[in-house]
């Protein structure tokens, strides 16, 4: 069944293939974010957990005192109010000073991480990301390779009002695309994010990157994925962008440096049909893409002004 479905797919990219046959067991009842696949995403995760635990400790203390008061000082238990207790300078100084100290302790690592995320220097590859209603366009700067990434057909059929298709029967329902964004691991990649029509927001939780795509402006973000973390990672548009805002997912296909280089060479060859050598180069790639699919990519490539 899955083979048949994948046969129907326009995409010959390994990304889509892998997506179709990959186990679809997903974390139900998930409670927390994941650590992600880069040093930055792990930093942000630890920051999140640190602030969370500080809040938990404070909550236990504050709610503890509240609950103790509710139990201990009940009128029905004969509690007599101490109406003279209306002011206590020492207590008030303490419960102003301690929160200040806690905030300073939290601000230091938060500031450090913020400065790190801002440092988009010494990047090795630049990809232009463009948001459209309702799809994502990617362009590998320098090589001219473009990818247009839209919701996959199975999800798109199933998500129509009254489609009668059970979303649970669609692998990676609403989180799958026809053409994934292929990126290299262990490489500092810079994203230049913009939009064509309205504001979108490019979000991949595993990278801890969420950056608004704003028409007329270019935002910068960067990531460096651990060498070991190859595979598919999914995200979604995070800024309301109209009717189909919920239906423009993001899939990144993280490959080793060598695999990525090979893929990029192939795509470059395929997307420049004027280059006579292009079709011959196709079989040399790690993840072969058929000429027909490559042509589809070219047709779908965004027209740029």
């Amino acid at each position: 069944m899955k083979m048949k479905k994948s046969g129907l797919l326009l995409s010959g990219l390994a990304a889509a293939l892998l997506t179709m046959v990959a186990p679809t067991a997903q974390a139900a009842w998930a409670l927390n974010m994941t650590q992600g696949i880069s040093a930055i995403s792990r930093n942000i995760y630890s920051l999140h957990m640190m602030v969370f635990w500080v809040c938990v400790v404070l909550a236990v203390l504050v709610f503890g005192v509240m609950i103790y008061s509710l139990v201990r000082f009940r009128k029905s238990q004969g509690a007599v109010p101490d109406t003279s207790l209306v002011h206590n300078t020492k207590a008030e100084i303490i419960w102003t000073a301690i929160p200040i100290a806690i905030l300073v302790v939290m601000a230091v690592p938060a500031t450090r991480t913020l400065i790190e995320t801002d440092d988009a220097t010494k990047t090795e590859l630049t990809i232009r990301v463009t948001g459209y209603q309702w799809k994502w366009g990617y362009e590998y700067v320098g090589s001219g390779v473009t990818v247009l990434s839209t919701l996959d057909r199975d999800s798109n059929f199933a998500r129509q009002l009254g489609s009668g298709i059970d979303p649970n029967s669609v692998p990676n329902y609403l989180l799958n695309v026809d053409h994934a964004l292929v990126v290299p691991a262990d490489t500092k990649v810079r994203l230049l994010i913009s939009a064509q029509d309205v504001i979108h927001s490019w979000w991949v939780p595993a990278l801890a990157i969420k950056k608004d795509a704003i028409p007329g402006f270019v935002n910068e973000a960067w990531f460096k994925i651990d060498a070991a973390n190859t595979g598919l990672f999914r995200g979604q548009c995070a800024e309301l962008c109209g009717r189909d805002h919920g239906f423009m997912p993001i899939v990144i296909d993280v490959r080793s440096k060598a695999d990525f280089e090979a893929w990029l060479r192939t795509q470059k060859a395929l997307q420049q049909p004027a280059d006579a050598a292009a079709p011959a180069a196709a079989p040399a790639t790690a993840a072969p893409a058929s000429a027909a699919n490559a042509a589809a990519t070219v047709r779908a490539a965004p027209a740029r002004s």
């Binding site: 504050v62 005192v65 509240m66 008061s69 509710l70 000082f73 009940r74 009128k75 029905s76 509690a79 007599v80 109010p81 101490d82 207790l85 206590n88 207590a91 008030e92 419960w95 102003t96 929160p99 200040i100 905030l103």
Partner: peptide, 20 residues
């Protein structure tokens, strides 16, 4: 900080009160 002061003050208001 000021929000904390408020929560602490409300809690202190209940402290040694006679609650219903």
């Amino acid at each position: 900080i000021p929000t904390g002061v408020k929560v602490f003050n409300w809690t202190a208001t209940m402290w040694r009160g006679s609650l219903s």
